[in-house]
């Protein structure tokens, strides 16, 4: 009896100590430290970057050809599409290990979650479908037939409309998330790669890699209302290939990755005018903000590195070597 009480007391003491240690650790860690997860398409790895020290702190082995990468809404896992293994792997943020996989269709590339984090919508490049997956049960709920080579995925801020772009059909498909039917198709320029809503739902931006433009779509009328073009002196038009788009929460500034132009365009999101071009690494594709939006990390595929942009200063402050052909990046709290 007494022994049991002793045990309890020591357990309690232990808990108090652990709790204290946790508080100490939390306060000791600088407020800006997040973890960026970078998918390396050729290395079959995910590099983990500490945004305080700006160093790679871990390299996680994943399946073949990791591309699309995102943090789950609960912040516990990072999902990474491994196209050549026809699945999406789940990396546990706590242990930084692959713990499970999801039943996507063939060759998954990009995906998006609904607001609750319960449903995952996946673009499957190989069979012209968007697959709907129940994230909790980890089962496939259904498919939506879309255009040729589905790629970009976005969900409207009210959760009602899912956008999928198809690269050879050159459309943004509007899918009703309740009925899973296509309700509208908007033609954009060649090879649409990425879709992003403004936080207030007033605009949908779609990048066209081969067309060299970003289409601004009115999501209510479902028409293209403006097109952003990029003119960089001394650079031929064919080299300007917009892919990734990042927009600040206040919807004032957008960052657009221009692929082999090796630049990020900073665009006034209200006027759709390019403010500035930042030189980054070679073949820049995707990006993610730190949660405090102080920094933007962009992946440079051909130079095998990640550029860090100071969002306020609009300057590149750092370059970090990662694995081969870095593709996507997702941001997590440690």
């Amino acid at each position: 009896m007494q022994a049991a009480m002793m045990m309890n007391r020591s357990k309690m003491l232990c808990r108090v100590w652990l709790c204290g240690a946790a508080i100490w650790l939390a306060t000791a860690a600088p407020a800006s430290a997040f973890l960026a997860y970078v998918s390396n398409e050729k290395s079959n790895t995910v590099s983990v970057i500490d945004t305080d020290s700006w160093t790679v702190t871990a390299t996680i082995k994943v399946g073949q050809r990791p591309r699309g990468i995102e943090l789950t809404r609960d912040g516990k896992s990072v999902l990474v599409a491994v196209g050549d293994d026809d699945t999406i792997q789940i990396i546990d943020v706590a242990s930084q290990k692959v713990v499970d996989s999801l039943p996507s269709g063939p060759d998954p590339e990009l995906f998006t979650q609904d607001a609750t984090g319960k449903i995952l919508y996946v673009a499957n490049e190989n069979d012209n479908t968007v697959t709907v997956i129940d994230l909790e049960k980890r089962v496939r709920m259904g498919d939506v037939q879309v255009g040729v080579e589905p790629e970009g995925m976005a969900i409207s801020p009210d959760g009602k409309i899912l956008i999928n772009t198809s690269e050879t059909t050159n459309m943004a498909h509007f899918i009703d998330t309740a009925t899973r039917e296509i309700v509208a198709n908007v033609l954009v320029d060649a090879r649409p790669r990425f879709a992003e809503f403004k936080r207030d739902g007033s605009e949908l931006w779609v990048s066209s890699e081969i067309g060299g433009t970003v289409s601004v779509i009115d999501p209510a009328k479902r028409v293209v209302t403006d097109k952003i073009e990029f003119n960089i002196p001394g650079l031929r038009r064919e080299a300007i290939q917009p892919v990734g788009i990042g927009m600040t929460r206040d919807a004032k500034t957008a960052f657009i990755a221009l692929g082999p132009a090796n630049r990020i365009a900073i665009v006034d999101a209200a006027t759709h005018k390019v403010i500035k071009y930042l030189l980054v690494g070679q073949r820049v594709w995707h990006m993610a903000f730190t949660p405090d939006e102080k920094y933007l990390l962009v992946t440079n595929g051909v130079s095998n590195d990640v550029s860090v942009i100071d969002v306020t200063a609009q300057k590149v402050i750092k370059t970090i070597q990662v694995g081969e052909l870095p593709w996507g990046v997702a941001m997590a709290r440690p």
Binding site: A184, N185, V186, R222, V223, V224, T225, D226, K227
Partner: peptide, 16 residues
């Protein structure tokens, strides 16, 4: 800008 607006209107016409 005007060019794009015209483009947008014609695109709209195409879809509808």
């Amino acid at each position: 800008m005007i060019r794009w607006l015209i483009g947008a209107i014609s695109l709209c016409a195409v879809t509808s």
